[in-house]
Design a binder for these strands. Structure first.
Length: 923
RNA sequence: GGGUGGUUAGCUCAGUUGGGAGAGCGACGGCCUUACAAGCCGUAGGUCACAGGUUCGACCCCUGUACCACCCA
């Protein structure tokens, strides 16, 4: 083995081996429990960001964990066609080529999209492989696959036939740039600085005017009422009268509606039912006329006076303001902060716009979806996300599923010239079913919302509507791993559609993880220039390339300089190559229950070092086991030392802790337990404890064999324990140790996952090693504080302690000498006087390090005094507690007893240190 | 305005029936000790946001306040 861990030398090669050997496929064992995860399909044209890396790492750990437990495990991958996002990307490419999709035509455009998909669609899956993900690649799916389209179409048709899909003219969120409706969830409402304009609206009878306040003056051309609060004394008497609407020169009524906020603006609100969601509802209540004044580009249409026709909306805004001002009708303008709706893809201001769209009646579907969570058929982890789910589901609106795009699942509906709608699987089917002969039919131009199709993901990808074996085996799936930001978008939709069509839940558990942010807690985004590419963390990247990457293709070039500066400051050396295992381990360590996950490069470095630690510990183990009898033949002629029994005992506890954490989705706790065991117990102590045995020519062959056997077997076990979290390094080393550990098999991936054996928990050995550690740590403390060079071997004198202490420490004499770097160890008999020494305590045993020539009296006094003070503080706390009669009376006997024991211990320790202090003070 | 999460060492975070505050990174001091300097040994550092309450006992349970973040209106 190399002296240092080189991730790039092992990772890709093992991945290839695994994939070629088909290890990722389900075992097909029908006796075993099925376990299945469906990947949340990433956008096909996208690339893997830190959030994906985090999510895929978690799924892979779960999958590998269950696969090793013998479950029939399926992890199915795939990508989403992502209607708007993909169409935008391809349109941008076309623009660069100097053409547009309209010039190309629909069919040609779709061909172009497929070409693009072929070209870039592999990006995500390549990156997934680099992360060590182990999905069944042979079952990879795409939401635009033929088979999947069949499921999508079937769902649409059945919902239509069951009266759960309808077509209606409603206000939708219209994106005037992308020319499509988008859902509420794709609209971002951000506060922006705007204005509040106050206009005078003259009363029709000429008796005066009302002042209305608005943030959108241009819509006044579509006003069809002015509303006041019915109990507002200022305006009450005007209800029923009319306004002569300026510029448009129409008469509109003044109405009373308690929706009006008396405090806002002037208390008079202009009502534009065709261009505002609240006004729309008020329009319904009062039967108001709806005047649509915008076209699809959000330019003014022919419903407005000649002068404004064809004007862009914001130009029209200033024109309207100017014209009203010229008429003396502009009362005032004040600055105003308002929430502006913007499309999350296009960034332009969204218009509420009246169009014909397809809707799903969600209420009946939502009821079932709520029930499934209430009755525990589906569990959220952490639990509190259920509230978020409920609150959204209980207040759900009908779902607009049509999109005015070309890329997506075309709606299976046809119209005749009289405007009748026919829904069916094909034009032929529709003609036949409705006896249409050869009248002209045209298919609906629109496609379905991407989330409509991804709502079918769990069962649509398993072959539904056919009743396939896969569907029977793996559905409902086991767990969905997702970010909380997608609960509404996706989880809710899957719940509704799956329950309706499969009459069962899509998954039993929803594990909701946090969102990965940068080390300052900022969201990672291209425009902030703080994105990290998981692949760069794996392979490393030099500073210049990183700067180049972060500043290229920027939407806002003016940020370039800032980003460059910030990047050079934060990563002056670029990024080192940390390898996949270190990256994954970092993800797990961060996967606690919080919502924000701050990713600090310092963490990943620490885990790369951890990998190196495992690597080097394995080198040591192999150096000492290779070519020796380690009991790999199953022979029993070995003897386990105290240290062997201790590390085996600790291993059982670790196995238990790791399993428990994994079962509860606490990857942070699992990774921590493993880290502690490997580094702090196995490497720092056990490996060191093994040296005096292996290097001692006098040690018996049986004990040496016991030590080798333990060294190699604990290592082999811990590799299996760690494999789901760090697949590559564990495989690489496992291949080298498996034979010596008496194991066989082609890959660690398919070995059994370690399970604790309670019988091997050995409290006796644990106590003995704890005592030994105390002695060694006591001596090290003296050495460290007294600045005695590690090279100087020092004598140690022991005093006091029970017979058992003496027995245990005598047995461990060789270990003590090596680990504390001693010259000698001896016991002081009662009555024998001790030389002037530095002192420490290990339980009841006093440790004396003779001071001759070694120790500075003042320093030693100070050190003792510090210890005494520390004990004193603790002592007075315990004393206070025990002097309190309420505590002694009311606390459980065991607790009181424990405190009494503690008191005695502290007292005796303090006494002895005090005595020592006095002794050296005499010098 | 409604809701959710958070506030623990300089930084990032654990702390699961209420019974002696932990880790990693960083800091400081000492070491190339035959697996590892990507390392080893030692040390320092916290009124657990604040104020009440319950309890013999509160980082933990209850109430309120402040601040931060996010979601919804």
């Amino acid at each position: 083995m190399d002296k240092t861990y080189q991730p790039n030398a092992i990772e890709q090669q093992w991945y290839k081996t695994w994939e070629e050997n088909g290890y990722f496929k389900p075992s097909g064992d029908t006796q075993a429990d099925p376990y299945c995860i469906m990947i949340p399909p990433p956008n096909v044209t996208g690339s893997l960001h830190m959030g994906h890396g985090f999510q895929e790492s978690i799924m892979d750990a779960l999958i590998r964990y269950h696969r090793m437990q013998g479950d029939n495990t399926l992890w199915q991958v795939g990508t989403d066609h992502a209607g708007i996002a993909t169409q935008m990307v391809v349109e941008r490419l076309l623009a660069a080529e100097g053409t547009t999709r309209h010039e190309l035509g629909r069919d040609k455009f779709i061909e172009k999209v497929w070409e693009w998909k072929e070209q870039s669609g592999g990006n995500i899956t390549r990156q997934l492989r680099r992360l060590g993900a182990s999905p069944d690649w042979s079952r990879e799916r795409f939401t635009m696959d033929d088979g999947f389209y069949k499921a999508v179409q079937e769902v649409f048709i059945r919902l239509y036939e069951d009266d759960l899909i309808y077509r209606g003219k409603r206000l939708v969120n219209w994106d005037p740039k992308l020319h499509t409706a988008i859902s509420d969830l794709e609209v971002l409402n951000e506060e922006e600085q705007g204005h509040l304009w106050h206009f005078r609206y003259p009363l029709a009878d000429g008796s005066g005017h009302l002042v209305v306040a608005t943030t959108r003056p241009e819509t006044m051309l579509g006003d069809t009422a002015v509303a006041v609060h019915p109990e507002d004394e200022r305006y009450q008497h005007l209800i029923g009268k009319a306004i002569k609407l300026p510029l448009a020169n129409r008469e509109i009524p003044i109405i009373g509606d308690d929706y009006v906020d008396r405090e806002f603006g002037t208390g008079c609100v202009k009502i534009t039912p065709a261009h505002d969601f609240n006004d729309y509802e008020m329009g319904q209540r009062h039967n108001l006329e709806m005047i649509n004044i915008l076209d699809a580009d959000a330019n003014l249409n022919n419903e407005v006076p000649e002068k404004y026709r064809g004007m862009e909306r914001f130009a029209a805004r200033s024109q309207v303001v100017d014209d009203l001002d010229a008429l003396g009708l502009l009362e005032k303008v004040e600055p105003h902060t308002l929430k502006v709706p913007r499309g999350d893809r296009s960034g332009v201001v969204i218009e509420p716009w009246l169009t014909d769209q397809w809707y799903v009646k969600t209420q009946p579907l939502a009821e079932e979806a709520i029930k499934a969570v209430e009755d525990g058929s589906v569990n959220f982890v952490p639990k509190n996300y259920e509230n978020m789910y409920f609150s959204w589901m209980r207040d759900i609106q009908d779902w607009c599923i049509s999109r005015q795009l070309w890329w997506g699942h075309r709606i299976p509906a046809w119209y005749d010239d009289s405007g009748n709608v026919y829904v069916g699987r094909s034009e032929e089917e529709v003609r036949q079913k409705h006896n249409l002969g050869d009248i002209a039919l045209r298919q609906d131009e629109d496609v379905l919302d991407t989330w409509f199709s991804s709502g079918l993901w769990t069962f649509g990808t398993l072959g539904w509507p056919e009743d396939t074996e896969e569907l029977k085996t793996f559905h409902p799936t086991s767990v969905l791993v997702t970010g909380f930001d997608i609960i509404f978008f996706w989880v809710a939709r899957m719940m509704m559609l799956t329950l309706y069509f499969k009459k069962e839940v899509p998954f039993h558990t929803v594990y909701v993880h946090g969102l990965v942010r940068d080390s300052h807690g900022q969201k990672m985004s291209k425009s902030k220039g703080n994105v990290l590419d998981p692949i760069d963390l794996i392979d490393g990247i030099d500073l210049e390339s990183l700067v180049q990457k972060r500043t290229s293709g920027m939407m806002q070039p003016h940020l370039r300089e800032k980003i460059e500066k910030q990047t050079r400051k934060e990563f002056p050396e670029g990024l080192a190559a940390y390898g996949t295992d270190a990256l994954r381990y970092t993800y797990y360590s961060l996967a606690s229950t919080g919502r924000d996950i701050k990713f600090d490069v310092g963490r990943i470095e620490g885990f790369r070092n951890f990998c190196n630690k495992i690597w080097n510990a394995s080198r040591y183990v192999l150096q000492n086991c290779d070519g020796h009898d380690c009991g790999q033949d199953g022979s029993g002629d070995f003897e386990l030392s105290l240290a062997d029994r201790w590390i085996i005992s600790q291993l059982q506890r670790t196995e238990k802790a790791v399993r428990e954490a994994m079962d509860n989705y606490r990857f942070d706790l699992a990774s921590q337990a493993l880290y502690d065991f490997i580094w702090a117990e196995y490497c720092s102590w056990y490996l060191e404890l093994s040296k005096p045995v292996l290097w001692d020519d006098a040690a018996s062959p049986a004990v040496k064999k016991g030590t080798r056997r333990t060294l190699i077997r604990v290592l082999e076990t811990v590799l299996r324990l760690a494999h789901p979290m760090m697949p590559f390094i564990t495989e690489e080393i496992w291949q080298k140790v498996k034979d010596l550990a008496g194991q066989s098999g082609d890959t660690i991936m398919l070995q059994s996952y370690p399970e604790a054996d309670e019988h091997r928990i050995d409290t006796e050995a644990e106590a003995a090693i704890a005592a030994l550690k105390q002695v060694i740590e006591g001596v090290r403390n003296i050495r460290g504080e007294m600045k005695i060079s590690p090279a100087t071997k020092i004598p140690l004198i022991l005093r006091g302690g029970s017979a058992e202490d003496r027995q245990n420490l005598d047995n461990a004499r060789a270990l003590m000498i090596k680990l504390a770097s001693l010259e000698s160890v001896s016991w002081l008999n009662t009555g024998e006087s001790a030389p002037a020494s530095a002192t420490a305590l290990a339980g009841d045993v006093e440790l004396l390090v003779p001071m001759a020539g070694l120790i500075d009296v003042a320093a030693e006094s100070a050190r003792l005094q510090k210890e005494i003070d520390k004990l004193g503080k603790e002592l007075s706390r315990v004393e206070g507690k025990l002097k309190n009669p309420k505590f002694v009376d009311k606390a459980p006997e065991a607790v009181v007893e424990k405190e009494r024991g503690k008191l005695a211990e502290l007292q005796s320790a303090q006494d002895r240190l005090q005595q020592q202090l006095e002794e050296i003070s005499k010098l």
